[in-house]
Design a protein around this nucleic acid. Structure first.
Lengths: 346, 346
DNA sequence: CTGTTAGCGCCTTCAA
DNA sequence: TTGAAGGCGCTAACAG
């Protein structure tokens, strides 16, 4: 039979209340009493029944998700996943709130973080912007004892408890290897190919990291492939379309395109419209309705994806665990870089 | 405030016990009383607090995992994941037991299933063998009201509640596309290449399905690629080694190898030893210590993987949900076909 | 500082 | 057929 607080109380010769004080290290216990109780706890190998504790406390975990009010498919999907979690909240004893902030706006994010801090939730998850002020605001939350998880975009060198997102350098490297392999023939060789990269903005950390990984692999392993100067589409479909269309007009022999940001709807239209003699190899990020269709149609060759549902569920699990001071299953919380070809679409 | 059994009792003008009888539809309630209570339940939108219910019942979910006592890395890893779940069982209110059976032995599996049936666990997970007797045994479990989940290998046309594993036809197709893309150059063309397939045994459904997917894609999309007659390595490293070594001696110009079963340790040795003028493109299944190392070394080009940890955790979640008659989050339970290149290794 | 007591939401005897 | 009462494991007043 698993030991309970009663067993501890009996053996240690104290009351339930004292055991509870020790367990939740609340004040009001003499040091000797405390250590005696702790000894018994250890000797019994006691582990508290969280479900019972939460029941007694009437506890619900109040978490706040701060999300950019971006209107690209990925962010919309992320919102939906959080709303799904909200729908399940009664069963999961959570009380989740979404706070929208304007995208790419560090000051707005800082303001939101400070406002959330005042509400003292049991945990906060947010899509980070890599700026000193944001780091400082995160520090204030942590000092208040509020667990924080960065979502999709990390905040390195900050006291965040966990990052629920992919390794973007690795993602860029993966794209680079796929591009290299899709373009190179081991039996022939030597012919120079040109590849263009479409980013949202080089100011965003994720995009910089993906580019870095991609460039490294291409330079190191595929000397025949030349990367043209990066194009910035601001994650905007319309801008992406004209940008890529122009590039394909200038370079009708373009061998490949790596789209490392959003706005792929425009990219796809541009490739179709340009009708170059030979379709370029296209690798893009995030599986959405449009990238999925393009994959099926053969306009896109591979999609790298991060599973927004997994990220949200993982963030919640980790926040819960941190709030309770519990360990997490590391493997379960690692967000994979999914590679989708048209053959393994979910 | 969420409604509780007390609210129902008060409004319906009955006692807690009666409400409980209705909730768990136990006998001993007049039809009129029952429907009155049910009405109140519906009108309040009551949902029972599972944690509290389990606490009161002192419930633990007893699950049995029937696993083949195979000694390849994947199966060993699967065992480990189940043991990990057992280690967490106190926190998760589960009581999980592992039953080992000899591999590829339908009769032994049937015997194990029937033995488990006698113990009436709250759920059973097992690695299926595609045979009529096994299907019948599964039927007996289901008739006894025991939820069953197939793990890694499915049992189609059976009453299993859920399959925690990958789509093997899709996996084969994915391997085919990667092979095709890695071997073909869009700018040149026409040159015939030979590819060999190493399977464990064509008697196993997973392997048949992977081969089917692979062949289809190659035939339909890569006419220059010829698939040589399938080699069977019985998932045995030693046999795989000699088989592949011989094949590479006979065909020094072998362009690719698709290893769709286990025993990759031997395959890797053979490729290294053969030292063909040009290394073949190698695609294998399951990320293990040896395939991982081979990926890093460039001996293997891509590994398709199913996450055993995810499969086990998913099986447990689903068994719990089925035992309680609850829905599952479908997206969370879909087992992905992971594609690993050396760049996105976890 | 420590103990007593009454719940949290639900289930389960045991009587009526 | 129904109800009253006690308890699951833990926590939180409120006394002492």
């Amino acid at each position: 039979m698993k030991p309970t607080v009663h067993d501890i109380a009996k053996i240690a010769g104290v009351s339930l209340a004292t055991v509870d004080r020790v367990l939740n290290d609340r004040p009001g216990v003499r040091a000797v009493t405390r250590s005696k109780v702790e000894e018994v706890i250890a000797s019994l190998g006691y582990v508290r029944d969280l479900a019972a504790a939460n029941l007694a406390k009437g506890r619900t975990y109040s978490f706040t998700f701060i999300l950019p009010a971006n209107d690209n498919s990925f962010m919309i999907g992320l919102h939906e996943e959080v709303r799904g979690a909200i729908a399940r909240s009664s069963a999961e004893r959570t009380d989740i709130r979404i706070v929208d902030v304007p995208p790419f706006d560090p000051e707005a994010l800082v303001a939101a973080l400070d406002k959330v801090l005042a509400e003292k939730p049991a945990g906060v998850a947010f899509v980070a912007i890599d700026a000193p002020d944001v780091r400082a605001a995160a520090g204030r939350l942590r000092e208040a004892g509020i667990p924080i998880v960065t979502l999709v975009s990390d905040l390195p060198d900050s006291p965040r408890d966990h990052y629920a997102g992919i390794d973007n350098i690795a993602a860029g490297r993966t794209a680079g290897s796929l591009m290299g392999r899709f373009l190179s023939d081991p039996l022939t060789g030597g012919q120079v190919r040109y590849v263009t990269v479409l980013a949202g903005s080089m100011l965003v950390r994720d995009h910089r990291e993906r580019l870095e990984g991609f460039s490294t692999v291409i330079h190191d392993n595929y000397p025949d492939i030349r990367i043209l100067p990066v194009l910035e589409g601001r994650d905007d479909p319309a801008l992406a379309e004209t940008t890529i269309y122009d590039a394909l007009r200038r370079h009708p022999d373009m061998a490949g395109i790596y789209s490392l940001g959003a706005g792929n709807r425009g990219l796809i239209r541009a490739v179709q419209k340009a009708g170059t003699p030979r379709r370029p190899v296209v690798i893009a990020h995030e599986l959405t309705a449009s990238t999925r269709a393009a994959l099926m149609d053969g306009v896109i060759d591979a999609v790298l994806n991060q599973d927004a549902g997994h990220e949200v569920r993982s963030a919640i699990r980790v926040l819960k665990a941190k709030a309770d001071g519990l360990p997490v299953i590391a493997a379960q919380e690692r967000i994979r870089i999914d590679i989708f070809l048209k053959d393994n679409l979910p």
